[in-house]
């Protein structure tokens, strides 16, 4: 009884206003996803009618839509390409970023400060400005329409290097010295000490890289014209093309299928994502 009283005594106009605002924002965020779901799992024409229903009306129609998208378009292949693109990019960013951060954070070498400053300067250059030069380099390498052309340019992450360097600076020198006395080589110091101790930062960077890579549209669009190398976002864009004759429920099905992996990913890693965004001060 007293507990209930205490709970009620915590309700203030300010807390009511905060909750109301939070619910409004949540509604704005969730409604498009719900609407997408609603359109997919509805009898054709119902969601777009004069009297739309805000709940799914036909499970079978939705399953038909999904079957149609998966069988009649290159969606499954696009999934595979997107997953490969994302996984390879994450692995590469983590490996290259952590190796570079290990050197910058824990060792002194001539030119280290200037090199680090140069890398940090690149953070100020917008992606649009580097798109054409990067394309030209990739084209000269003969990597157009290849997986390496898709992945390699995204591996050098200045932001990742910065984040991991700052994190690794907190590793005590004495720990590295102890490992050196235990017989660790330079690479073993990185592999057995620095890398496991940077797990939190690596997980954060992996999540941020996933968010950035899965939704990346412009680079795959520029680098690959072959349908065999289309990512999910490219395939979805085909459904939305001005001259496509697909109906709204099919377009929404494609969008829903594209949104499922990041949604699942977010549900699994929501705590780490929020912590990562809070600690890095970025939304990736």
């Amino acid at each position: 009884m007293t507990g209930l009283k205490r709970n009620f005594s915590r309700i203030t106009p300010w807390s009511v206003a905060k909750w109301a605002a939070a619910l409004c924002i949540a509604f704005v965020m969730v409604f498009p996803i719900w609407w997408m779901f609603n359109v997919v799992f509805a009898d054709p024409g119902v969601p777009a009618s004069l009297n739309p229903r805000l709940y799914p009306t036909s499970l079978s129609a939705g399953i038909e839509n999904i079957k149609q998208v998966l069988s009649e378009t290159g969606f499954l292949r696009a999934y595979y390409i997107s997953v490969a693109y994302t996984v390879l990019t994450i692995a590469g960013v983590l490996l290259i970023g952590s190796m570079a951060a290990f050197e910058f954070a824990l060792f002194r070498f001539p030119g280290a400060r200037i090199l680090f400053a140069l890398v940090m300067l690149s953070l100020m250059v917008p992606t649009a400005a580097t798109l054409i030069p990067t394309y030209l380099v990739v084209a000269k390498l003969g990597w157009l329409n290849t997986m390496q052309g898709l992945v390699v340019p995204g591996l050098a992450s200045a932001f990742g290097l910065f984040m991991l360097t700052q994190f690794m600076k907190s590793i005590p020198q004495e720990m590295l010295e102890a490992a050196r006395l235990d017989g660790a080589t330079h690479f073993q110091l990185y592999w057995f000490i620095a890398l496991p101790l940077s797990k939190t930062a690596l997980v954060t960077l992996a999540i941020l890289t996933f968010m950035k890579t899965w939704g990346n549209f412009i680079w795959p669009l520029v680098i690959s014209q072959k349908p065999e190398l289309f990512t999910v976002s490219q395939v979805v864009s085909l459904f939305n093309a001005p001259l496509s004759h697909t109906t709204v429920d099919v377009v929404m099905t494609a969008n829903l299928l594209a949104a499922i992996p990041p949604l699942v990913f977010f549900l699994i890693f929501q705590r780490q994502i929020v912590e990562g965004i809070a600690s890095s001060g970025t939304k990736g």
């Binding site: 005590p172 004495e174 010295e177 102890a178 050196r180 006395l181 235990d182 057995f192």
Partner: peptide
């Protein structure tokens, strides 16, 4: 340093936090 045949105990202990006691000792 590793081949001198010396072992050092540090002021801050310098234990590897991600390893168990046995793994620390047997590293």
């Amino acid at each position: 340093a590793a081949k001198r045949g010396v072992a050092m105990v540090f002021q801050s202990y310098a234990l590897y936090p991600h390893m168990t006691v046995a793994q620390n000792m047997g590293f």
